[in-house]
Amino acid sequence: MTTPQRKPLLQRLAGTNTLWIALVLLLLIAVFGALRPDAVLTVFTLQTTLVETAVLLVLAVGMTFVIITSGIDLSVGSVLVFSGVTSAMTMNALSGGDATNAGWGVVAVGLLVALVSGAAWGLLNGVLIAKAKIPALIVTLGSFGAALGAGQLISNGSNVSGVPNVLSNNLGTGTTFGVPNLVILAAVITAAGALLLGTTRFGRHTYAIGSNEEAARRVGISVTRHLMTVYLLAGVLAGLAGFMATAYFRVASITGHDTDNLNAIAGVVLGGTSLFGGAGSIVGTIFGVFIPAVLRKGFVIVGVNVYWQPIAVAIVLVAAVWFDQSRRKARDQR
């Protein structure tokens, strides 16, 4: 009898969507770079692209876990807004109404409030989805509206200013060895997410549940608790993203996040994570999140009307899903 051999890494990668999507990303950069080498391949362009994508990347890391369980979370953008608002208002309240000159202690409380706010919404989603067994699409469509509404109620419908300078100057716009701090934080979160998903039991169970929930249950995985944890994780990361956005923009904004959820989902799916669950990776998500960002940046620099960007993203997205679907169909027809 033959012992099964392990295929070489490249050959294994070639079978996955991740490699293809990475090639698409490289191709885009190469094309834009060739058209305008002076403007595209600069430190400044790189920095701004990274910074503008950092917050979305954090949302997309949580979304990757959710989608691998074959779920969905439409609420992340609204939870981001809610968390930003509660965080900024708490910091203001602790500083007599205006936290602009507040210190690190206040910032730490603000961070905690943002994380707890996100966790609360994530837990609510998780309980309704995993325990009450209401479809994730419906639950998070509900919390998508509710979290934004709640944020607007608390802030009286206006942006919350008075963000501490120490926060904005350091996390928001500061750099370390030329790398924006916001990007470093996003990179740390992404790396942690990639390790959690790719190397741990928690990650393995996430795949198993998305692949065959009943099978996971029968081998003794506590599916309900696991799903609740996954939505909780997505909520906490949305809370963190809200804190990061607040630091960057120096204001907790209640507008401009209504399509964050869709952008995060698009990034995840572009990166090769299957909407059917059971397959995907954080590495893929990184590529997937940067494709729309690079397209937007590239179009601006090259002088293409930016309204083409969503159309281009849509084409790549539909192609990616179609590719995944036909691959699965071929497999399941065995």
Binding site: R201, R204, Y207, A208, G210, S211, N212, E214, A215, A216, R218, V219, G220, I221, G277, G278, A279, R331, D332
Partner: peptide
């Protein structure tokens, strides 16, 4: 009751990793 997206070893050890 196997997880089709996981490889045979992962399925063998599923829940007992």
């Amino acid at each position: 009751a196997v997880a089709p997206d996981l490889d045979p070893a992962a399925n063998l050890y599923l829940g007992r990793e």
